[in-house]
């Protein structure tokens, strides 16, 4: 039994209302849509434990073989509410790869006596919306947009006692914050030596996050003065929220990498940054992994076929720490989600 669930209060209330109303309004399937590591599986678990007697849960594995496995699990269901996690793993991006998903959607449509509560990866959902108009099968759609700063704070600080972590505003001046000095190795042939020359570069990630902060302030009509009144602790979690876009796994990583000697300096909060320049095929493989969140290498090879050298692309993605591969299961690095997303967006991938 999981502990108290933090965040997504409105979303949970909407799902609970649908569950309570189910019976009077049959066939109201729910789709919970979110990016990788946003907490959709934890939310599903929490909801499952709220209605344990009338619900069952199915988790689609990353290395599913055929619809038969899924069908067996679905046919065994007796309970009224069916939680199905990671439904995006039911399709593969190849010719004939939608067959299983179509059968699954048919099953949902022909079994109005059950309330199906499903979870989907946002990138797969958007793609499937354009190809199969999947939104028509799910009258209730819940988008998880990430946690707020105070919710991230509650989750992270639950592991610490009061006063155990010290928050400091930091002592970097503005120029130090916006300029990063990178070492450029200069080879002097005559001396047969290489000298590292510090080259100033603009901190684009910080500028970007500052711009977003500014836009948020303007949109939400928050005053700068109000911001200045915040404590270093509040500022730290606001910053973590901005960088992670409310993604709890990423927020936890940022926290761990920013915490030094039980101290968090607001100006020195870790900012993930990647510089990998990927070719089109490798970006596509990275985008497929992002769309699945977690997918087996075999499924990936099956989907792509012989068109792309998958092994090479995976090696490049791994070398740049954009993905992780364990037991032939590929998963996107939480720190690289925004980077791969931006690469795919630039390449106009769907």
């Amino acid at each position: 039994m999981p502990g108290e669930f933090i965040g997504y209060k409105d979303e949970i209330k909407k799902i609970e209302d649908t569950i309570i109303d189910f019976g009077s309004e049959p066939g109201a399937s729910i789709a919970i849509i979110a990016g990788p590591y946003t907490g959709k599986s934890t939310l599903m678990d929490n909801l499952y434990y709220k209605f344990p007697l009338m619900s069952t849960r199915i988790k689609i594995p990353a290395e599913w073989d055929s619809y038969e496995d899924c069908e067996k699990a679905l046919n065994r269901v007796q309970e009224k509410i069916v939680f199905i996690d990671d439904c995006h793993l039911l399709y593969r991006r190849r010719v004939g790869g939608f067959q299983t998903l179509r059968k699954y959607l048919d099953h949902i449509a022909t079994h109005p006596e059950h309330l199906f509560i499903t979870s989907w990866n946002i990138f797969s959902w958007e793609y499937l919306n354009e190809t199969l108009h999947i939104e028509k099968h799910f009258p209730t759609q819940i988008h998880l947009h990430g946690l707020e700063a105070d919710e991230i704070k509650s989750i992270i600080m639950s592991d610490y006692n009061t006063g155990e972590v010290i928050f400091e505003s930091g002592d970097k001046n503005t120029i130090e914050r916006y300029l990063i000095f990178e070492k450029y190795p200069l080879r002097i042939k005559n001396l047969e030596r290489t000298i590292d020359i510090p080259v100033p570069k603009l901190n684009y990630s910080l500028l970007n996050s500052q711009l977003n902060n500014f836009l948020n302030r303007v949109l939400k009509k928050k005053s700068r003065q109000n911001e200045n009144e915040k404590t270093p602790e509040e500022l730290a979690f606001l910053r973590i929220k901005d960088i992670s876009s409310g993604n709890i796994r990423l927020a936890q990583i940022i926290w761990q990498k920013s915490l030094h000697n039980s101290t968090i300096k607001v100006d020195e909060i870790y900012l993930p940054s990647f510089k990998a320049k990927l070719d089109y095929d490798t970006t596509f493989v990275g985008f497929l992994i992002l769309s699945m969140g977690k997918v087996s290498q075999d499924s990936l090879e099956d989907a792509i076929g012989d068109e792309i050298d998958v092994v090479r692309s995976l090696a490049i993605l791994r070398k740049h720490e954009l993905i992780d591969i364990r037991d032939r299961i590929c998963s996107v690095n939480p720190e690289a989600i925004q980077y791969i997303e931006s690469l795919a967006k630039d390449a106009r991938m769907r």
């Binding site: 793609y127 095929d281 106009r348």
Partner: peptide, 8 residues
């Protein structure tokens, strides 16, 4: 629909 070059 499944091509890596599709715009949808």
């Amino acid at each position: 629909l499944t091509s890596k070059y599709i715009f949808l």
